[in-house]
Simulated assay, not measured.
Amino acid sequence: MKGSAPHATTPACMRLAGELRELRARTGLSLAVLAERTPYSKSSWDRYLNGKQLAPRQAVEALCALATEPPGRLMALWDLADLEWSGRARSAAPSVIAKETARPRNHRPGNRAATADRAEQRPRKRTTVGRRGAVIAAACAVAVGVAAAVWAAVLPDAGAGDPVRQAALSAPPSPGCRARGCAGKDPGLMGCGNPTQVRALGAPRRTSTGAWTEIRYNPACDAAWARVWHTHIGDALEVSAPGGKPQRAEVADKYDAEGYLFTPMIDGSDLTGLRVCFEPGGGGGPECFRR
């Protein structure tokens, strides 16, 4: 278990927590469902997403898998966050300097022993300074090298000159279902939520509570679903089409309320009569609209 709080505001740690929140929003999974599908508890996920505790590497890999996100970029960011969180990135050079600059206590003016000792120490002192400089330089080189390598992997435009890497990053994953086979399944888990393939069916609709709803469709999966944002705990969203089972999602916690919440998918081969209904958790009737 990683420590908490002291280094949570360092840049890489903050960015990693933000990236994890975005991945969780993409999956549309509540903390309770994340706890069911991973070895980590609901309270652990709460700390990881809030940046109160550095998520274990395996937790980041698990969330990437759930969000169908290639793990390379997040793993590189985790490496840098781990250096920041543990303090290893800044502790090496000061400790070396403190150790190497310690001086004997008998160096007092007018003391013959001290004078002789200084004479004997001069060549050693120069050697020590040289060694100290070499150690510090090596430590700095390692830190700079690690940071440069990690940020090169993390930044979006890194490796722009590598056509093979760019092709791998830009190629969308193959969907895991199609049409009727997608009904009731999670768009993120099935590879249907890829933003390069998804399009909105019509303009977003604003509800009386201030929440916004939108219909999403992926032609590669031939499936549709709805999403909602600016919600409150207890709100619910349902999408349906004639001849198919309605699919529903409920705002279960603050993370659902802070990000996008997605319904499971419906068969998108015939979207005639598709309907979306928003139900406010604070009471009141459902607000429905058709495509």
Rank of each mutant, 00 (worst) to 15 (best):
N106G: 01
L155Q: 08
A168H: 09
A167I: 02
C192K: 12
P123S: 06
A113T: 10
R290F: 04
E19M: 12
E279L: 15
G133P: 01
C182R: 04
A8C: 08
W45Q: 01
R122Y: 11
V239F: 06
P280I: 09
A102Y: 05
T27C: 14
S43A: 15
G28R: 08
P195D: 00
R205D: 00
R124P: 00
V164T: 12
A167R: 12
C64N: 03
A171H: 10
G243H: 07
R108D: 00
W45D: 00
A25P: 00
G282W: 09
A17S: 15
E22Q: 12
F278R: 05
V60N: 06
G234Q: 09
T9W: 11
E19I: 08
R132M: 15
S240E: 04
L54K: 09
G268F: 05
R105D: 09
P94A: 11
V96H: 02
Q58T: 13
A59E: 06
G3H: 11
G87M: 08
T27I: 15
V150I: 00
T27G: 08
T115V: 12
R227S: 11
P219Y: 02
L83Y: 10
V33N: 06
D256K: 03
G145H: 07
V276C: 10
H232W: 08
A134C: 02
R112C: 01
S170C: 00
T213P: 02
P219S: 08
G282T: 10
R227P: 00
V239N: 03
R21G: 07
A147K: 08
T263Y: 10
P6F: 14
A116M: 09
G110R: 13
A252T: 13
V142C: 10
L83N: 02
C277T: 04
F278N: 03
G87V: 12
R122I: 02
G234T: 14
K245W: 09
N111W: 13
G181A: 15
T196W: 03
T68W: 02
G28V: 13
R105C: 01
P172L: 04
R26I: 05
C140H: 14
L189Q: 15
R206L: 11
A81Q: 05
G51Q: 07
P175Y: 02
A93G: 02
V251P: 06
V60Q: 07
P195G: 01
W212Q: 07
L20A: 02
P204M: 11
L74A: 04
R178T: 15
A138R: 14
R126G: 03
R165L: 15
W229E: 00
T127Q: 13
E214P: 01
S208E: 03
V142Y: 14
G210V: 05
V135G: 00
A249W: 12
A137K: 11
W225M: 02
V60L: 06
A141C: 09
A59M: 08
A55W: 03
Y48S: 01
M265Q: 05
T127V: 14
S30R: 03
G110P: 00
A224W: 08
A143V: 15
